[in-house]
Write a protein that binds this DNA or RNA. Sequence first.
RNA 1: CUGAUCUGCGAGACGAUUGCGCUAUCUUCGGAUAGCGAGGAAAGUCCGAACACCCUCCCAUUUAGGGAAAAAAGGUAGCGGCUAACGGCCGUCGUUUGGGUUUUAUCCUAAAUAGAGGUGCGAACAGAGACGUUUAGCCUUGAAAGAGGCUGGCUCCCUUCGGGGAGAGCUUCAGUGAAAGCUGAAGGUGAAACGGCUAAAUCCUUACCGGGUGCAAGAGCAAAGAGGAGAGUUAGCUCUCCAGGUGGCUCGCUUGAGCCGGACGGUAACGUGCGGCCCAGAUAGAUGAUCGUCUAAACAGAAUUCGGCUUAUCGCAGGUCGGGCUU
RNA 2: GGGCGGUUGGCGCAGUUGGUUAGCGCGUCACAGUGACAUUGUGAAGGCCACAGGUUCGAAUCCUGUACCGCCCA
Length: 110
Amino acid sequence: MLPRPNRLTKKKEFEKTYQQGKAVGGEFLLVKISPNQENKTRVGIVVSKKVAKKATERNKIKRRIREIVRSEVLEGKTVGDIVIIAKRSSEKSSYQELKADWENILLKLS
RNA sequence: CUGAUCUGCGAGACGAUUGCGCUAUCUUCGGAUAGCGAGGAAAGUCCGAACACCCUCCCAUUUAGGGAAAAAAGGUAGCGGCUAACGGCCGUCGUUUGGGUUUUAUCCUAAAUAGAGGUGCGAACAGAGACGUUUAGCCUUGAAAGAGGCUGGCUCCCUUCGGGGAGAGCUUCAGUGAAAGCUGAAGGUGAAACGGCUAAAUCCUUACCGGGUGCAAGAGCAAAGAGGAGAGUUAGCUCUCCAGGUGGCUCGCUUGAGCCGGACGGUAACGUGCGGCCCAGAUAGAUGAUCGUCUAAACAGAAUUCGGCUUAUCGCAGGUCGGGCUU
RNA sequence: GGGCGGUUGGCGCAGUUGGUUAGCGCGUCACAGUGACAUUGUGAAGGCCACAGGUUCGAAUCCUGUACCGCCCA
């Protein structure tokens, strides 16, 4: 889990990022990012039931994404509200594949 | 060795680095340290209860509160018990069935006479009442499918020869007899062969259960906006108070029909009292990531909380029954 | 998290006291008709009634479980 100040917690914050954010897609992930006022990094992760039917598998994907993103948040390289959406293909992806996909997305962003 | 079924136990371990939630303590308010941190099914939501609100009615009515007799609808159904409650569990009767004893059992491993005492084999079914018929059905097969009625055949009786009345209902064999419809036995068709079967369809009766909604129940604090009152002010507007309650926050939220140990009562389910323990409480939702060694490691992630049932599923041990092989 | 509903030919739907061979509309195919089509007419094919058990003599229908799809509650 990420520290509380670095999470997106309200439904409105999610929707705002959805509508105003810039979208970048990878093989397994879809990232929406929009700048916020406090100049902080706040992250929300979405894994829908369409991706994986079992709750244990959805949790697993979430945990892996969190772990990948954590270093990013702590170092504060990327700033803004970020929503990471898992694509259907991410159900069978490994940790290393997810991490490579994330780094690829960061390259596209910069 | 293997299959089925039942019961019980466990649910990867250790080490390193790093990260999250709650609680406690300390704090230079940045944080630090310590402890604890998913399941047997957390699941399906198929039942039941606690708790909260609403509805009906009754008692008390100044209130606070306490209750479910009656009505509707629905559910349950051998009998007895357990329980907060249940469609659950335990015991027992019944029906069907398997195994065993000494060949057949009404017997049950101490297993076939008599008496006394002790012990009490396994599995499945799901059972109130109405001599079950008021509501209904029995496709098909067959000569015939409850009784009664109708139609046709058969037997007997009567007959005005038009018919009428009574009776029995498959086949074979045996008995009695003039004759089989009677009596007894065996057998055929069929799911069922007679006063039969079906009720996990309906209706009626009896007993028991008040009903509904569900923690997104519900309760509190309260920015904003809209409303009312008062004061200041020429007015715009500002301030104060009241009621109300959106965003938000807090409570409900984890000490509980709790867990462990041994004692007593009971055939058992379970109960009684004693001692010890505190064991998740999040709110976009918390033990994951990267390694090393061993390893067979499945199904799978709490969201108000419990008791069951059902479904998913890895490993080990034991009981019962069946099958195969060897001695 | 809590509460509900649905699944029947290719598509949209009927089908309840359980009982002949599960129907309807559109679509499909064949034939007729036309110079050729459309409209029209005649006929035909196409169903494991989502799946698996159970109750029953008999199940699309009743009961239980499973799978999939959808709706409502802040």
